Amino acid sequence: MIMLQGVRLLDPQSRTDDIRDILLAEGKIIRVGEALWLDASLIARAKGEVLEVFDCAGLCAAPGFVDGHVHFRDPGQTHKEDILSGARAAAAGGFTSVVCMANTTPPIDSEARIVENIRKGRTTGIRVYSASTISQGMQGEALVDMKLMKESGAVAFTDDGRPLNNEALIREAMQKARRLKLPLSFHEEDPRFVKEPGVNSGPAAERLGLTGADRQAEIVMVERDCHLARETGAAIVIQHISAKESVELVRRAKQSGVRVYAEATPHHFSLTD
């Protein structure tokens, strides 16, 4: 029997963020509370077991983390990462569930490819889920068979890495995704406002002799997709959001009942250009 003493418990379900003791037996949590030492000793003695106590001051305990946007580069670019190495890295960081993006080489746009990725994920020791592309070949011209992809195991749809410019295609995708009860995740970067991707338009770009990517590239597409999500009732995710105007658009959409979510990478919310 093991007791984690004085650990900072972070539990979103019970909205707990406080110091607690956690008692475990046979790999399972059997009690959580304050000052459990006496109770834990009595329980261990009654079971004829030894109680191991670990001082966890300064440490945190939390449910397994979920990363809804990972790139395991499998298939096609496994010299960068593959499903096994990515899952090991995730587990080392406390992540027990991940969702792989579909912009692999070739992309995950067929039943066979998604089934293979899910099969590999089952060997890793964590839960590895996979998204499907929205469009065939990530070309933005025709939708994948979204119903078949869900039946094959897809948990979301995304052409991450490439923006979708065809509004009629996006509306159709949102309508189908709503019926399938799966979210769509969007890479919001209108190419009309991007001279060189990867650098923000501003003083730093100018010093390098570049034009860069104007913040409007993101803003106009976030505004468009929030509007379409309101119209269709779809659930959408704005990927790696970076402009304050985009954040405000998402905030207002949420307040009006739109099912829109957003995520940011650490460098987007902690660094300037």
Rank of each mutant, 00 (worst) to 15 (best):
Glu116Met: 06
Phe54His: 08
Lys120Gln: 09
Glu49Gln: 15
Arg113Ser: 12
Trp37Thr: 14
Asp67Tyr: 06
Asn117Gln: 13
Thr104Phe: 03
Ile126Phe: 00
Leu23His: 09
Ala102Ser: 15
Asp39Lys: 14
Asp145Trp: 13
Asp39Cys: 05
Arg73Cys: 10
Thr123Phe: 10
Arg45Glu: 15
Ala92Cys: 09
Asn117Trp: 01
Lys120Asn: 05
Glu141Pro: 02
Gly93Cys: 05
Ala25Ile: 10
Pro107Arg: 05
Glu49Ser: 15
Gly140Ser: 14
Leu143Trp: 04
Gly58Glu: 02
Gly48Phe: 04
Ile118Trp: 06
Pro63Phe: 02
Phe72Gln: 04
Gly121Trp: 04
Ser130Trp: 02
Ala131Arg: 04
Gly125Arg: 09
Cys60Phe: 12
Leu84Tyr: 09
Ser97Ala: 07
Leu143Asn: 12
Arg122Lys: 14
Val128Asn: 08
Ile83His: 07
Leu51Met: 11
Thr104His: 06
Gln136Met: 13
Phe72Ala: 08
Glu34Phe: 13
Met138Ile: 13
Asp74Lys: 06
Arg31Phe: 08
Ser135Phe: 04
Asn103Ser: 11
Gly58Val: 01
Lys120Glu: 09
Gly121His: 08
Ile30His: 05
Ala112Leu: 11
Phe65Leu: 07
Arg45Pro: 05
Thr133Val: 12
Lys120Tyr: 05
Leu24Cys: 14
Phe72Gly: 02
Pro106Gln: 01
Ala46Tyr: 08
Ala44Tyr: 11
Arg113Phe: 06
Gly76Gln: 06
Asn103Ala: 12
Ala62Gln: 07
Gly121Ser: 10
Ala89His: 03
Ser110Trp: 03
Glu26Ile: 00
Asn103Arg: 10
Thr133Leu: 09
Thr96Met: 00
Arg119Ser: 13
Ala44Val: 12
Arg45Trp: 08
Arg127Ala: 04
Val128Cys: 08
Gly68Lys: 02
Ala142Phe: 11
Cys60Trp: 03
Thr96His: 01
Asp39Val: 11
Thr105Gln: 13
Leu51Asn: 12
